[in-house]
Amino acid sequence: MGNGIIIYIEHLRGIVSDISFEILGAARKIADDAKMTLYAVVAGKKVDALLPGLGKADKVITIEDDSLEMPTPRAIADILNAVGSAKGISLYMIGGTNISSGIGVILSVKQKIPLINLCKNIRYDDGAIIATNQLFGGKILSEVKIEDSKGIFCINPGSFKSEPGKSGTFPQTETFEFKSKESKLKFIKIIEPDLSDVDISKEEILVSVGRGIGSQDNISLAEDLVAVLGGAVSASRPVIDQGWLPLNRQVGKSGMIVKPKLYLALGISGAPEHVEGMKDSSLIVAINKDPAAPIFNFAHYGLCAEIEDIVPVLTDCIRNKKG
């Protein structure tokens, strides 16, 4: 195997993203199995505050520059490229998040090495690195293998536990001099979600609707259920994109991360981007007419049925129970 692995530590507003710890843990295991050095790259306007807790890396490489407050994917790809060239490493792991999107592609073009996106698992086995990827909305998995330790793996958030990547020790650090090029993409500001009517991340019960709800009129089925059950109505991406519910109701990769006591998924297929936002709910019940819907692989209880047939009956049943 090669000289080492480089992982990118993603952060937003002074906080290291959970995905970075997931990757630290997974990369630590690969580095130990393959007897490689694990480097973590932290780039930002102020990096010192981000370093505690990154002790699972053999060495943290820091790049500090005012222009890196909200770095473009190209700026980060340039940095990872420069660090990799300096260390003689062409093996990278990056978070498959919205913030980091594009870094892998640009780095792959610069280094002329393959990009392996949508990874849900990655392991070292007998001289090769093998990754499993979630394709077609999580319905099909693919397996790819690299044997020359040249590749960029983007890891879907939620694929690994973050705890094994966390450490109480301060890492060894090394500063890396790098001057970013002027970018045509300029960061203006961060926009907070509008939580004035509801903050779904704080609700204990969520009745969540997906594409399978069929029409905007059917949202009322979920609202009627919430009226007797309590909680709030949330949704997966297609419902928000149709304009059937406002943005602050969205659960998933781009929306809110929720952990209610009950997550009742109505007509939600369970694409990886959605599951990322609700997989830690205490009780997940899914109602979907497609028996092959991936949501049934995450739910505790499932019903294979039409939403219109079951939800009004359930609402009546709860109303009667509550008297």
Partner: peptide
């Protein structure tokens, strides 16, 4: 890019318990 070694369907170890019956029964 890289050649895919194989495609396969997700292996389900912890699938939901599927409730069956009439709408009234499952409710």
């Amino acid at each position: 890019g890289l050649t895919i070694e194989k495609l396969f369907e997700p292996e389900v170890t912890d699938r939901a318990e599927i409730l069956e019956g009439t709408p009234e029964e499952v409710a």
